[in-house]
Design a protein around this nucleic acid. Structure first.
Length: 418
RNA sequence: GGGAGAGUGUCCCGAGUGGCAAAGGGGGCGGACUGUAAAUCCGCUGGCUAAGCCUUCGUAGGUUCGAGUCCUACCUCUCCCA
């Protein structure tokens, strides 16, 4: 493959499909080819976990490190107190300081699995912008930083323009977000020598603000790089599943569900996802991608296992793959399916089917459970059940000592008496 | 400060005449077809101890046999004037 860039870093990103826009490609390429650069990505601290959309930029940091540079993961402890208006129609909820800090603690875990942290020249660093943003003195900040921002120009940014056009409120609080993000870049440049900020394509405006700010303040040339917005071929945004957002923290979204999420990738996306989410060599991906028809399912399994291994560890990935194989391909009862315990006495007395479905989490209410039964979606121990008044007793226990409940072909759970 | 408008099913968008569990989309879920895919077609998409009952249309009151719909006050947002 002909190398388009001089630096390994940009070549890898280019070949794997990570590049959407770069502010000064030649300049960044020359710099990355010449020396070790420091680049960063900022993460929101508004939830207790980052989600699948964020995984792309974490992978970006991974490749930055792999190609001999230093990544910084910036926790938005300060900026999350303001709230990014980008892509938001309504104002964000203002979070408490305690909530933001506990979110950061929870988010941190995922990074250490993907990046190598330490004190070496290419070891990753984790910083929190609350460290400098919360100490700012208002008037001083306005005089030193605010003077470089033109409101005329700020009003022209998409994030702001959209709100104005839709006649939706944009508070002064949120309006300041881009100034803070721009300021972050200059701080990270001074403290860590960061010259590159990366992010999703929606962050372009915010990142460019930092580049321009440095320029106006007489600082060094900084660079911006954004990744394309992830969408499925069918046009849907990526990251939503039946159970809500696809979180990277195992307690919010189980490794098994995570594996399933990638296993159900649309055919047209398999190659793209393999390049972006896995570390498999491009030649191998090319072979997998070339598989036709149902053989592509093998590629999907590899995709699912590889990505799950990166996020949840190899063991969890193999286990998920095995559970899936047993459940879908053999039709066996796999005891690692999500299990809910019930008291043996309750079961002996007879447990209503609808009640049981709600208990194991396959339905949100009796009404929903009833509808599932009526539409023929419910099975008990793989036998279709059409009577909603069915009662489960100890006679329904399988030799394994559990009762298997299913809604549809993909959702299964076990009920276990204790 | 003055004037004009908006807030609908806790996923989103959006009709709504005093009889409304409330049109229609999108999304989601389930079924059929498949390959745990896509596309397509069909069904479902407030809760319950269920031929009934309860809770929903920004909030709180009021008129009425009956209020999403009419009246009053308040909250939030938008626009115009100052």
């Amino acid at each position: 493959m002909a190398a388009k860039y001089k630096s390994d870093f940009l070549n890898v990103l280019d070949q794997r499909g990570f590049i959407h826009q770069i502010s000064d490609p030649e300049g960044l390429d020359a710099l990355a080819a010449k020396e070790t650069i420091t680049g960063y990505v900022g993460y929101d601290a508004t939830a207790t976990s980052i989600h699948i959309g964020n995984l792309i930029t974490v992978t970006l940091l991974y490749w930055l490190q792999e190609t001999g540079h230093r990544p910084i993961s910036l926790m938005g402890g300060g900026t999350s107190m303001v709230g990014d208006p980008t892509g938001r129609e309504a104002e964000r909820q203002v979070l408490t300081v305690e909530k933001i800090n506990s979110n950061i603690e929870s988010i941190k875990k995922v990074y250490s699995r993907i990046l190598r942290y330490g004190d070496g020249p290419t070891d990753a660093v984790m910083v929190n912008n609350a460290d400098w943003l919360l100490k700012l003195n208002y008037v001083e900040f306005l005089r030193e930083i605010g003077r470089y921002f033109s409101v005329n120009r700020m009003l022209s940014f998409d994030s702001v323009k959209m709100r104005l056009e839709r006649e939706q409120s944009l508070t002064f609080l949120e309006f300041n977000y881009m100034i803070m993000q721009g300021y972050d870049f200059t701080v990270l440049n001074k403290q860590y020598g960061a010259v590159l900020q990366m992010g999703g394509s929606d962050q372009w405006g915010n990142i460019i603000n930092g580049v321009e700010l440095s320029h106006k303040m007489g600082g060094p040339q900084l660079y911006a790089l954004t990744t394309p917005l992830l969408t499925k071929s069918s046009g849907e945004k990526m990251g939503k599943s039946a159970s809500g957002a696809v979180w990277l923290n195992g307690d919010l979204f189980s490794p098994y569900d995570f594996w399933q999420y990638f296993r159900n990738t649309e055919d047209a996306d398999v190659g793209k996802w393999l390049k972006i989410f896995t570390r498999l060599p491009l030649e191998e991906i090319a072979k997998l991608e070339a598989l036709g028809g149902s053989e592509l399912n093998e590629a999907k399994k590899i995709l699912a296992t590889e990505v799950t291994a990166i996020v949840h560890g190899r063991d969890a990935a193999e286990k998920s793959a095995a559970t899936a194989a047993a459940t879908f391909e053999v039709g066996a009862i796999d005891l690692s399916l999500p299990t809910t315990e019930v008291s043996r006495g309750d079961l002996a007395a007879g447990l209503g089917l609808l009640n049981a479905l709600v208990t194991v989490g396959l339905a949100g209410s009796n009404g929903e459970a009833r509808r599932h039964v009526q539409s023929g979606a419910v099975r008990v121990n793989d036998e279709a059940v059409t009577d909603e008044r069915t009662s489960l007793g100890t006679s329904a226990l399988l030799p394994e000592g559990v009762i298997k409940l299913s809604v549809g072909k993909k959702k299964h759970a076990l009920l276990k008496p204790v």
